[in-house]
Computed example of a mutant assay.
Amino acid sequence: MNEITEVLPELLRDAISAVPEEARRDTEEIRIRVDRPVELIQKGQPLYLSYVCTAGDAQLILSRLSNYSMYTLEEELKKGYITIRGGHRVGLAGRVIVENGAVKGLRDITSFNIRIAREKLGIAEPLIPFLWKENWLNTLIIGPPQTGKTTLLRDLARLSSTGSKRIPAKKTGIVDERSEIAGCLRGIPQHSFGRRIDVLDACPKAEGLMMMIRSMSPDVIIVDEIGRMEDSQALLEALHAGVSVIVSAHGWDMKDLVKRPSLKMLWEENVFDRYVELSRRRGPGTISRMYGKDGEPVPHAESVMTC
């Protein structure tokens, strides 16, 4: 967590260091709000520190995030988050500046949500028998927030681009709209991937899918959190171009997603070969169910119920 603590005020660093090591290891988010106690999210539950963030602390954090040059964060402030070294993402909240109906940026930032990016190398390997059949099967990973969707996608991208004894390395493209999968810093992925990886960072998914296909001719495309009509249309274009897709979407389960009009065309075209539902039942990454193209449970998938 050195990449995170180096942007924090020294007294806050000390307060976090005083937390038992095991609890620090389980921390998923550090939530900092002006005039409120700092909150650590561990296994989905809050732990409040005695340290209360001041306005001066918030200004110092923002200065360190921008390397003391706020103009360099202009684009990030429009999006509401900053990616820092190590692939960690810092979400921001404060006063929104709107111009001509569009968000121009943020001012008076009073809340920071530091989402700790952790690699879990190898967690996707038990899924190979279920997601690979002479090629990667078109797969949709479903789960509510903090169920490990992005972590699983990241390791699937690593497996796809490195290959293994069981599968060859494939040209793999990541369309990383929110800089979460690859955690790029100035375009360079901060996580472990193979030699055959290409990343479009901070690029809208629909546009990025088409750009990746036209420019990099990938065998496989990895995309996080589809949800808009444009995403669905672009995915269909990718599939018609012969590219395998592995994507995620927010939802409690398949039944939840089927109700979303923006994804309707994907169900009508029956594009996915595998549906993987995640939960936190036994911690992030718990695979609760896996379905095939016909909507029937995949046989023997219970052998990898937790990744």
Results as ranks from 00 to 15, higher is better:
N2P: 15
E3Y: 05
E6I: 10
V7Y: 01
V7F: 02
V7L: 14
L8M: 04
L11C: 11
D14E: 12
A18D: 11
P20V: 08
P20Y: 02
R24D: 11
R25F: 15
T27G: 13
R33T: 14
V34F: 03
R36D: 13
Q42Y: 04
K43D: 14
L49A: 09
Y51W: 04
T54K: 01
G56P: 08
L65E: 01
S66H: 04
M70Q: 14
T72R: 05
G80L: 07
G80T: 12
G80H: 06
Y81W: 01
I82K: 02
R85C: 15
H88W: 00
G91W: 02
L92C: 10
L92Q: 05
I97M: 07
E99V: 10
N100F: 09
A102S: 15
K104H: 15
K104P: 15
F112G: 06
I114H: 01
R115V: 12
I116A: 10
A124Y: 02
P126F: 02
L131V: 10
E134V: 11
I142E: 06
Q146P: 10
G148Q: 04
L152Y: 00
R154E: 03
R154L: 05
L159G: 12
L159D: 03
S160C: 09
T162N: 02
S164E: 06
R166L: 09
R166W: 07
I167H: 11
E177W: 03
R178W: 00
I181S: 03
G183N: 00
G183M: 01
Q190H: 05
Q190R: 10
H191D: 12
S192T: 15
R195H: 04
I197A: 06
A202P: 14
P204M: 02
K205Q: 08
K205P: 13
M212V: 15
S215E: 13
M216R: 11
D224F: 02
M229W: 03
M229N: 03
M229V: 07
Q233H: 14
Q233P: 07
L235V: 07
L236S: 08
A238T: 11
H240K: 12
V243M: 09
W252N: 12
W252C: 14
D253C: 12
R260N: 13
L263M: 12
L263Y: 04
L263N: 08
L263F: 04
K264A: 09
D273N: 06
D273R: 05
R274M: 08
L278D: 13
S279V: 03
T286E: 03
G292R: 01
G295K: 00
E296H: 14
P297M: 01
A301V: 15
